[in-house]
Design a protein around this nucleic acid. Sequence first.
DNA 1: CGAAATTGGTATGAACTCCGACCATTGACA
DNA 2: TGTCAATGGTCGGAGTTCATACCAATTTCG
Lengths: 246, 246
Amino acid sequence: MIPSPDDAHDLTRAVLRPARGYHAFEACVEQLATTIRLGVYPRGTTLPPERELATRLNVSRSTLREAMAALRQAGLVETRRGRGGGTVVTLKPRTPSARAASRLTAAQRQDWLDALEFRRIVEPGAAELAAGQRLGDTGRAQLEAAHADVVAARKPAQHRQADSRFHLTVATLTGSPRVIEAVTSVQATLHEMLLAIPVLEANIGHSDRQHAALVRAILAGDQERAGRVMTEHCDDTAALLRGLVG
Amino acid sequence: MIPSPDDAHDLTRAVLRPARGYHAFEACVEQLATTIRLGVYPRGTTLPPERELATRLNVSRSTLREAMAALRQAGLVETRRGRGGGTVVTLKPRTPSARAASRLTAAQRQDWLDALEFRRIVEPGAAELAAGQRLGDTGRAQLEAAHADVVAARKPAQHRQADSRFHLTVATLTGSPRVIEAVTSVQATLHEMLLAIPVLEANIGHSDRQHAALVRAILAGDQERAGRVMTEHCDDTAALLRGLVG
DNA sequence: CGAAATTGGTATGAACTCCGACCATTGACA
DNA sequence: TGTCAATGGTCGGAGTTCATACCAATTTCG
């Protein structure tokens, strides 16, 4: 039985997506800026050499350099020449402020809510997978270090970055490229949201307890519990944000 | 506490991904070919006009036309001019054959296994979300139609396409762009695998029973059961494929 | 029948991107 | 101290992609 074209129509509407959302240049700026803002490269660290970054991003060095120039002009990085030189991150982690929350397009809001739903699927899955992995010493150490950073963070801005890094670390432990990409994308959007919507101290404490429980579950290799804890964590954050986004 | 650059290194290795994997032209060919092979546009249906497709894929018409030319040359479509003309799908669904399975690169195998892991996260999540949706009559009808197509399909090739469409339909019902994209991507890879690795009739029967249970769970709004059934479904397929892929 | 609408086909120049080679600066190290 | 290596900076030509306008074929419908 061949479906009529009309049956297919809804599907295709949904399935066909932009083959290429933007120019290479913009894509680079976007990704690098996100990487920096998420704290993957914290303040003071040096980015990899241009040639390596270009290779990694699958982009010509010229294009990458244009992106770098944009970052430099935006004040995220500074560049020094010569051996031992390079591009260092100068961006101070932004402190959440509610100013931006007002000018929210409907599309933006929709995307944010979608990110929350997708997150609830992907991050628990990542946690479960990570718990199922047989982690080496380095893996366990990475996880504990990332968690320690979150606990140690005093200022909200630092806490936010450490939190991102923690979630990305969990994803990294799965060793699955697709999972990592999904979590990265979700965290980027989440980061945007949390910058626009300041979160209360009490919520941070709650969140930290969940992180701790998550670390225990993953280190213990308890997949089911890891997934459950992460699901709760996502649900709690989501409930909070949904309330504030509308 | 600022992490040392070395701490960050593993994370960045994982997080930085190609900003743009290929040229716009290739991306279009890739996506259109996949869409057609998955049966989103079954044999005999007419694709949307070039101008609309170009807009949808966010690509200039010239570029889209080059992609179309490639598809035409590859024998997937035929084109007629004039009002009421257009580009129609001529590709017969391919019958699975094991010929291709031999020349498998390590990277390819790795990607396939990764897709299976990612699928086990995303598709159950999609099923659960879909079950939680308050479906309208159209939604319910779509799901039942897609399922009926799977059951009615006689030849393996047709069954394969109907199966893809079924899973994509479930994803579509969630209404979440990110979920849809994730499932599409996963199904594309799965399709590749299943073309290279013929599956036995007995497995098809088993799979069909799971589909039926899934439809019941979603229509009943039973999220937990929908998720569980889909998880089993993915696990069973994965076990089979993992055995054959190595 | 004939005009209009819809669809694919063609052309051109500008902008973007890529690649490769080479230059300039600076710190590391023999 | 001088050489080397690593790094950012610059340049030019080739290939892609884009936007726009216009042409050609064919069906629909007044």
